Computed example of a mutant assay.
Amino acid sequence: MKAAILRGKNDLVIGDVLDPPNIVPEGFVKVAVKAVGICGSDVHYYQHGAIGDFVLQEPMILGHEIGGIVETVGAGVQFNIGEVVALEPGIPCRQCTQCRSGQYNLCESIRFFATPPVDGAMTSYVIHPADFTFRTNGLTVEEACLAEPMSVGIYATRQASIHLGQEVFVMGAGPVGLMTAMACLAEGANVRIFDVQEERVRMARELGMVAEVFNSGRKIRSDVVIDCTGNESAIAWGQHSVKAGGKLILVGMGTKDGMKLDGLDLTLRGISVRGIFRYANTFPAAIQLIHKYRDKMKLFLSNKIPFEAVPKYFLDGNFNSHIKTIVSL
C-alpha cells in the first residue's frame, strides 16, 4: 500500500509500505484511513527533522489526525463494519505510574503516531487498539479527524479548571487556539482570542468569537491565559495579563531557551503555571464538541487535498494560507 513517507528534511514522497496483516488481533480493529489532518508538528518534522528530543533518524510515515472507516475487527471488538471512527494516536504502556493514575499522555513509553521512531497513519490502512478507537455517531471522516486537535483544547480547558463566568484569554488563533477557545466557551467562560495575523483574527470572528489583533502594549487582566503559540512575547504578555491568583496555561511548544517567565511576579501574585502535553481521556468529549459546533467546524474543512498532492503541498510551503488542510485518501 501507499504512504506519505518523510525520508529527511524537506524530503517527502509517496512510497510503498507493507500491507498490514490479514488477521486482526483480539482487541484490535483494522481501519481504512480516509482523512488525515496536517498538523504543525508534521510541518516541523518536514522543515527541521526534529521536535525537541524527537529526532527523525529513519524514514517515517506522517499523520496523526485520523478519520477512517472500520474495515475488520478482531475478537471481542464491538464496532460495526463501515462505521466512521476517530483514532487516538498515542498508545501508552498502560502499566506505569502515569498510566495507572490516568495521565497516560505522560507515559514515557507511549507510542504516538508520526513521532520518531513511530510511523504515522497517512496511509491506506492501520491496525489500532479498539479502546483507542472511537465511534463518531454520524460525523464524516473529515470531521472525525478533527477530534485529535479538539482534544488538545479540551485537555487544556480541563487542566485549567475553566468554569462559568471566568475571563479567559487565548493566545493564538490557529486550529488549536480556536478549538481551545471553543472548549472554554462550552464551559461557560467569557473568551477573548488574540493573534498577530489579521486574517486569523477575522476567521475567529467568523466563528462568533471575540478576537483582536495582539497588542503587546495593552494592559488588561483575565482569570486564565492559555497560550497556544509558544512565542516568548505572547507568553510574557500573557503572564502579566493574568490576575493575581490566576493561571497561565502553556499549550504551544516553544524552544528550550525561548520561554522566559518572571519568577518574582509569579511568586508575588500567586500565579499558577501549567504545561500541557497532548491529552488524555478526551476523545469522547471532543466528538461531542464537534457535534455541538458542527456548523463552525466547516472553517477547518475548507481546504482538502488528494493524497497524491501531499509532497507538492509540503514543497510549496503555503502552510498558513488556510486554517487547516485535510488530506483525502
Rank of each mutant, 00 (worst) to 15 (best):
D53F: 01
A75W: 12
A50N: 04
F79Y: 08
G76W: 15
V73H: 07
V84I: 15
G82W: 06
V36A: 12
Q78E: 08
Q47K: 03
V84C: 12
P59H: 14
I38T: 04
G76P: 05
P59C: 14
K34S: 13
H44Q: 03
V43W: 00
Y45C: 01
P59L: 15
V70G: 08
T72Q: 15
G49F: 02
E88V: 08
P92G: 05
G40F: 02
G63V: 10
I61D: 13
F79M: 06
G76K: 12
Q47D: 03
H48T: 00
F79W: 08
H44S: 02
E65K: 11
V77Q: 11
C96N: 07
G63N: 08
G49C: 03
I81K: 11
R94W: 13
H44W: 01
N80P: 04
C96K: 06
L56H: 04
A75T: 13
Q95T: 14
G76N: 09
Q47F: 01
A86H: 11
V33F: 07
E88G: 07
I66K: 10
P92I: 04
G90S: 11
D42P: 01
A50L: 06
G37F: 15
E65D: 10
G74Y: 08
G67V: 13
E58Q: 13
C39E: 00
G37I: 14
I81N: 05
I51T: 00
G67H: 14
P89R: 07
V84R: 14
G68L: 07
C93Y: 03
Q78P: 03
I61A: 13
G63K: 09
S41C: 01
S41G: 02
G90E: 04
V77H: 09
C93W: 07
Q47A: 01
V84P: 10
F79H: 07
E88W: 06
I91P: 06
F79G: 06
K34G: 04
Q47E: 03
A35N: 11
V73D: 08
G74F: 10
Q95E: 15
P92S: 05
A50W: 02
Y45M: 02
V77K: 13
G40S: 03
F79N: 05
H44N: 03
V70S: 08
A35H: 10
E58H: 10
A75K: 15
V73I: 15
H44F: 02
I69W: 11
Y45D: 01
V84G: 12
V84W: 14
L87G: 05
C39D: 01
V43N: 00
Q78I: 05
G74Q: 09
H64A: 09
V43D: 00
I38Q: 02
G90H: 04
I91T: 07
E88D: 08
V43E: 00
G67R: 09
I61G: 12
P89D: 06
A75N: 14
G68M: 08
I66M: 13
G74I: 10
I51A: 00
I38M: 03
I69E: 15
L87C: 05
V77P: 05
Q95D: 12
Q95S: 14
E83S: 06
I61W: 11
Y45Q: 02
G82Y: 05
R94H: 14
V70Q: 09
I51M: 00
A50Q: 08
G90A: 12
M60G: 06
D42E: 03
Q57Y: 05
G74W: 10
V85R: 02
G67A: 12
G67N: 12
H48M: 01
Q78L: 06
I66L: 13
G40C: 04
V73A: 10
Q57C: 08
